[in-house]
Simulated assay, not measured.
Amino acid sequence: MEIRHLEYFLMVSKELHFTKAAEKLEISQPTLSHQIKMLEKEVGYPLFNRVGKKIELTKVGEIVQQEALNIQGSLQNISTQIAAYSKGEIGELKIAVLPGEITDLVSTLCIQFNQLYPNIKVIIETTDQVEKAVLQNKADFGIDFQLNPNDLLHVTKLYDEEFYLIRNQKNEGQKKVSFSSVVDEQLILFPSIHQCRKLLNKTSLEIGKQLEPIVETSSIKSILNLVRSGVGCSIVSRTLYEFYDTEDLFFQHIENPSLTRAVYLIMKKNCLINYAAREYIKLLVREIEKLHFHTEKEAINSLHSVIL
């Protein structure tokens, strides 16, 4: 049964006149009559009683009319929802991120995103397997710190960032500090499950030392407040330092070795990037550019041309 036949039938059932219905449909009356006969043959019953020049719906015609109206309504609803989805008026956005401070970056941008698209539901999946989440369509895209070549994934390096030692007092004339001396500080750090802490633990072992923080917390706001209170100092990524109110705090660059990492955007190849994902990525890229992170311009330009 073709949708076109139902559309023709509904017009005839509305006008109860083949010639008038044909004019409204902008087809010839013989063509319309032929299409209705084809529908009647498929249904197995007459849809109209023809009494002279007048026509009326049969009982079967009334059944078909009601169901055809339901189908027409469903089709209109599909079109309406697709249009709303394509404009970001409804929908869902799923983002996969590693446990830790990158979740704060994603969550902070969600505030801006929600203001622009309040009817789009945002789901942030915190997982150690960002690539797997993207490959299994559990996320529209992911943000990761690792680059594992995979023919099924499109990976874009967003930026490189370094880690700062932050204090509540400024060390005059000391813009840099060695990592070995940082380890001996009274440190307030994220727990070991955070990616930042994993990097710190690995680096400290490489120089033959072990981190022994005086406070561990998953809350960046708690870390910043503890540093403000003079409980100790902390090591945080530039991402967090820039995204939070840290004007009353002071930072030092860490060297010997310096602590840096790359941040990657991961998407599945040859898949539709929905409107919500594109708009969120636009916000992310604009924020990165505004904060003057060290980016690979070629990669960002490619992302602009292909995705944005």
Rank of each mutant, 00 (worst) to 15 (best):
Q66W: 02
N70L: 08
I71F: 03
Q76G: 15
Q76C: 04
Q76N: 14
N77P: 08
I78P: 01
Q81V: 11
I82Y: 10
A83M: 08
A84D: 13
Y85W: 06
G88P: 05
K94I: 01
K94L: 00
A96K: 03
V97Y: 06
V97C: 03
L98H: 13
G100Q: 04
E101T: 15
E101V: 12
E101Y: 10
E101K: 14
I102Q: 09
I102R: 04
D104C: 11
L105E: 02
L105T: 01
V106C: 10
V106S: 05
T108E: 14
T108K: 15
T108G: 12
T108A: 06
L109E: 07
L109C: 02
I111Y: 06
I111A: 06
Q112D: 15
Q115L: 03
Q115W: 05
L116D: 13
Y117D: 02
Y117P: 07
Y117W: 11
P118K: 00
P118Q: 00
N119L: 06
V122Y: 09
V122A: 06
E125F: 06
T126C: 01
T127S: 01
T127Q: 03
V130Q: 07
V130R: 13
K132W: 04
K132E: 07
V134Y: 14
L135W: 09
Q136V: 00
N137F: 09
N137G: 02
N137C: 04
A139H: 01
A139C: 05
A139P: 05
A139W: 08
D140V: 02
G142D: 01
I143L: 13
F145E: 06
L147N: 14
P149T: 04
D151Q: 14
L152S: 09
K157L: 15
K157Q: 13
K157I: 14
L158H: 02
